[in-house]
Design a protein around this nucleic acid. Structure first.
Lengths: 240, 240
DNA sequence: TCGAATAGTATATGACATATACAGTTAGCA
DNA sequence: TGCTAACTGTATATGTCATATACTATTCGA
């Protein structure tokens, strides 16, 4: 937390460090980007840096904290969102987040329970807030709307990342089985109707589903804004 | 996968088993429900059953597989959804899922990447499909819509589970800091406007945000259905 | 009744995070 | 100018885990 926001403290005495927080985090990112979250061990990180495992502990308190730092670092380059046309800007934001998750799938595995809220992630939040700043959404509504979009992006990314590999394979297997299973009549009907896609189509279809969902979300928000703003206008007219 | 769908095979010879898959999974659930996912070690599970750690391996191939079984077991009792009034039925479904995640927060930590799609989870899917079966949604659209709802529920649950503990504390700390930080003007403005909530209100507010989001989602789907179904009707009228 | 298949045990191994003790380095201060 | 506290990186040790391997006891079908 403090490392996340305040960075390392610089000592006055002692040998100059060959190592740095920055370098460790970068090494971790390199590793994880290339080989996934399971490959992240202190030993591997240390190797990457040509150093003994314990050396890293001079710069970070624990592996967990390193992960937090890596997560925030992964959220570099928040998109720049304008305050005009919230629909367009929010779409831009969502697509940027989706791209990020596709580039760094391991981020999806880092549970947000103990959120690593650092400056970079905050910049993303700020961008989304900016996009929505011209609407009449306030306080909790803003967080609600952004959480909504974010959740959708994560879900889509989750599916993207697995497809057309394990996920869709596994899933198609289940669907096939479910068709025959009398316990799942509705599912069986759906599957019978829709042809199984070839792997090339899966990617396209997921993309479509993402956009479909995003449009539904934005529609929902828009409906809400219109209903409320119209109501307000009417009340104002009548009241004045 | 096979254990998940076909259950254990019953041997003809050998001593009768004191242990069973069922018992192991239940012990695991008990443990995890009480002490969280980190408490799940084979040794603890074995202890719970009064047995050596290795004994469990006569019934499961690995800890990972045990987790898969536990996850599916946790999804017992899918809600019964009718085919009338999809909005109501889908709302029921979403609330049931939210309740499940609040009862078993550790489920949120089990990443869905390598989804443990078992009979119980499939029953949930089937219920949602049933709820939507009276609409004109088809194939991928159905999956898209359900994924949308599911993602929203998970996100809300995520926040619920953390609040009013670490998450909101942590988060408020960040918000406070962000207010002063010139890098996050939009965020600063929001926070300045909306008063910080007392912990009692946080729970209520999250609940509201969940319902707010859910309504937006359903609105979005409804808008889509209306637009399309109207379009179809018009085309049909003109065409006929 | 014999022995292959099986359940549970005992013990060993290897991966991993991390504590502890140490050796070499630097800069402020006596 | 050197002393030494504050520091960096290393070497080694420990404890926790999942899980392989070898073993003993049990059961049923041939």
């Amino acid at each position: 937390m403090c490392l996340l926001w305040e960075g390392p403290s610089e000592p006055s005495r002692g040998p100059k460090a060959g190592l740095s927080l920055e370098a460790i985090v970068q090494a971790g990112l390199m590793l994880v980007d290339a080989e996934g979250l399971n490959a992240l061990t202190m030993a591997r990180v240390a190797d990457e840096l040509g150093v003994t495992p314990m050396a890293t502990y001079r710069h970070i308190p624990s592996k967990e904290e390193l992960l937090d730092l890596m997560i925030d670092a992964a959220f570099e380059r928040a998109p720049r969102c304008g305050a005009d046309n919230w629909r367009r800007e929010l779409t831009k934001w969502a697509k940027a987040e989706l791209a990020l998750f596709r580039r760094r799938p391991w981020l999806l595995q880092t549970v947000l329970q103990r959120v690593a809220v650092g400056p970079n992630w905050t910049a993303w939040l700020n961008a989304a807030m900016t996009a929505l700043s011209s609407t009449s959404l306030r306080g909790g509504e803003l967080f609600g709307a952004i959480t909504l979009i974010d959740a959708h992006v994560r879900a889509a990314a989750q599916i993207f990342v697995g497809a057309p590999g394990a996920w869709s394979e596994n899933f198609n297997w289940v669907l096939e089985r479910a068709t025959q299973d009398p316990r799942f009549p509705a599912l069986g009907r759906i599957v019978a109707e829709s042809a199984t896609d070839s792997d090339e189509n899966v990617e396209r279809e997921i993309e479509d589903q993402f956009e479909f969902g995003l449009e539904r979300l934005l529609d929902g928000i828009e409906t809400f804004l219109q209903a409320r703003d119209n109501g307000r206008a009417r009340r104002r007219r009548r009241g004045a």
